[in-house]
């Protein structure tokens, strides 16, 4: 019952994040969806990842969103896409149905737990390449933050010359 409640709340928060007309409210709904996803991960037996998701997904990303919305400003005009709204939801429902058709046969009872080393050992010893990839990605992210903070001085100078 508790699990059902969590899943329903997650989906509701995600739906509100998509539907909310204000960008700031959208970011806050996304943060709560992220926190509830972290709770689901904890229930599925991965507490380390749940903690990281809670601090990074619900914390850092929300701060970045609020920061970016603060700089870029809210656009109150309702920007409708070229795709009509019912058609978009129909396409999404079709994709979900296709996914369910493929996923349901895989939902057997969990296989018995294999003897497995602890999370840190798996991460550092078996998935070492992933850790290297994460380091490279984090360096890229630092450059991205520089892009977020950069002022438009270069272009201003060019425009003054021309």
């Amino acid at each position: 019952m508790f699990d059902l409640l969590i899943v329903a709340a997650t989906l509701l928060c995600a739906l509100q994040a998509i539907r909310s007309p204000r960008l700031l409210m959208s970011a806050l709904w996304l943060a709560s969806a992220s926190a509830l996803t972290a709770l689901l991960m904890y229930l599925l037996g991965a507490p380390e990842v749940a903690v990281i998701e809670l601090s990074v997904g619900a914390g850092l990303v929300t701060v970045l969103f609020v920061f970016a919305i603060n700089i870029a400003g809210e656009e109150v005009t309702d920007l409708r896409a070229l795709v009509p709204r019912p058609l978009a939801w129909l396409a999404a429902l079709g994709a979900m149905g296709l996914g369910a058709w493929m996923a349901i046969p895989g939902l057997r009872a969990p296989a018995g737990p294999f003897p497995e080393p602890a999370f840190a050992a798996v991460l550092w010893e078996q998935r070492g390449l992933d850790v290297l990839l994460q380091v490279v990605l984090i360096i890229g992210g630092v450059l991205g933050v520089l892009g977020l903070l950069a002022e438009g001085r270069v272009h201003a100078r060019k425009e003054k010359q021309s």
Partner: peptide, 9 residues
């Protein structure tokens, strides 16, 4: 579980 968690990270 741990392999899945490492991938999720």
């Amino acid at each position: 579980v741990q392999t899945g968690a490492a991938l999720a990270l």
